[in-house]
């Protein structure tokens, strides 16, 4: 996929209007994973608006976003930064070798305590 197609796809998958962002930073201020992010939630919004596809796809923050939607709830402009992050994460996970998790990473305690919900959602989030 060339850059323009990739950008178009990211915009469609995000399903949120990044042009409405007024760069107040409230989304990042509320993010529980802020410290673990190389690109912050508000920067995802900005970078998508600028069409910086390569930079977005190289982000490590996509694996630390918790999809808690605190950013979405706080945004005064109705933008959904979490959707942009999810669009990037899904795009990367769909690429060959792009998976964020493998079956080998599941710890041995799996049968005892780990709820199905955790396995199912982690695999849905990190893998395609």
């Amino acid at each position: 996929m060339n850059n323009d197609m990739q950008l178009k796809s990211l915009i469609e998958m995000s399903a949120t209007d990044v042009r409405k962002c007024m760069k107040c930073g409230k989304c990042s201020g509320r993010c529980p994973a802020f410290k673990e992010m190389d690109i912050k939630p508000h920067q995802f919004v900005t970078l998508l608006g600028q069409g910086k596809v390569e930079k977005l796809l190289a982000s490590k923050a996509i694996w630390n976003c918790l999809s808690c939607l605190a950013c979405v709830e706080r945004c005064p402009r109705g933008v959904a930064p979490a959707n942009v992050i999810e669009a990037v994460r899904t795009t990367v996970a769909r690429m060959q070798g792009g998976d964020g998790i493998t079956a080998e990473e599941i710890p041995a305690e799996v049968n005892e305590m780990i709820p199905q919900q955790l396995l199912v959602s982690a695999f849905r989030k990190y893998k395609k």
Binding site: P32, N64, L66, L118, A122
Partner: peptide, 15 residues
């Protein structure tokens, strides 16, 4: 109403 860390407990336990 803060997140408990969700599915990060599989990939990033400390978080």
């Amino acid at each position: 109403n803060e997140c408990c860390g969700a599915y990060a407990s599989l990939k990033n336990k400390p978080l």
